[in-house]
Design a protein around this nucleic acid. Structure first.
Lengths: 190, 190
DNA sequence: CGGATCGTTGATCAACTTCAACGGTCGTGG
DNA sequence: CCACGACCGTTGAAGTTGATCAACGATCCG
């Protein structure tokens, strides 16, 4: 609750007097490790802000393996935004990677909140715009490098993240098998 | 100019009286095929809306081959959003795939426009949110399918686009070589 | 007509996956 | 508190996928 208000203030310059009321549109939840907040087939009616811990958005491919599309650490938003926008069933799961405390807002409450505080449109615009930029960058990284280079540049750029997250999840994010990641690590050490 | 006003009205429900003045913050340009609107190393100080034609965002990888990150057809926005936000040099190119007519707004003019018409924050919020959703979907497609399936599902989903765009550009978007795309097409026909 | 651009074809090669098996560690219930 | 099982990381061999390279055709445009 503190973290969300801080973030809104920092990004959109909204005064604390308002952020308090804004926060009242949310509810705070605690989730255990591996707990699911969204399952394939459900409508994703919620938008999530991670205050503490880590969530991930993933899906299960045809061969049954899981592929994670995004992680959300502290101060990141996460949702299936097509399901959230259209209220159609999702093709994704959202799951806690660690025990986490998360601020949650329903689609309807978000609309109400935006009507009451139009300045929050700017906040979300900036959030999504930033993600858009980050995605362009990620696409560049993915196409520009071999998987080996991808892993190396990723782990030197986000060393703390590589520590926090199990290797098989990192592999499922970077797009290769845990076995291959093992090979890469072996070479790197020697 | 018509197309942009229509789009703003449709997405954010802004009345024609306002969209006219909003449009005055833009200027319209014509670009020739293969003309560059942005080069690597330049600051991307502009945001582009395609009224007619097609643009692409791409970069050149270490081996010199081009990789296109996004296409923008009619009624799509395009920019390097990290460079646009931070005013730092871009790592990308923006180029016309076809002769195009494009609405252009500078970073500063966009800020002025948003101050005068705060409802446009909502418009851009919805645009970026939609892109965010589309990106999640694209990530799923890329990881869920072999390159062969990727091409087939893409070309059955966007047949008109596959017609419009040369094959080597499509290959550079899907992430493989033109030669390999050729192989796939041969198999598909027979 | 002539040159550049784009698509095609086939051979070779590297990157990465798959499968199967083993070892360590963590947490939970007895 | 110990022991068992589940989970996670590792290893190596064999098999695929897709890249690379080089050469040739076709088409478009000046």
């Amino acid at each position: 609750m503190e973290a969300l208000q801080q973030h809104i203030k920092k990004i959109a310059g909204i005064p604390a007097a308002d952020t308090r009321e804004i926060a009242s549109f949310f509810r705070q939840i605690q989730v255990k490790k591996k707990e699911n907040l969204l399952r394939e087939g459900m409508v994703c009616g919620l938008n999530y802000f991670v205050e503490q811990g880590c969530l991930r958005l993933f899906f299960t491919g045809h061969n049954g393996t899981e592929h994670t599309v995004q992680f959300a650490l502290e101060n990141w938003w996460l949702s299936d935004y097509t399901s959230f926008s259209t209220q159609r069933p999702s093709e994704f799961y959202i799951q806690a990677v660690e025990p986490s405390t998360v601020m949650v807002i329903t689609c309807q409450a978000q609309e109400d909140m935006l009507e009451r505080f139009p300045a929050m449109e700017r906040y979300f615009r900036l959030i999504h715009q930033r993600v858009h930029g980050a995605t362009q960058f990620r696409m560049k990284a993915m196409h520009d490098q071999s998987r080996k280079e991808l892993y190396e540049s990723f782990s030197s750029r986000f060393p703390e993240f590589v520590q926090r997250v199990p290797q098989y999840l990192l592999a499922s994010y970077l797009g290769f098998t845990p076995e291959y990641l093992s090979q890469l690590r072996k070479k790197k050490i020697s």
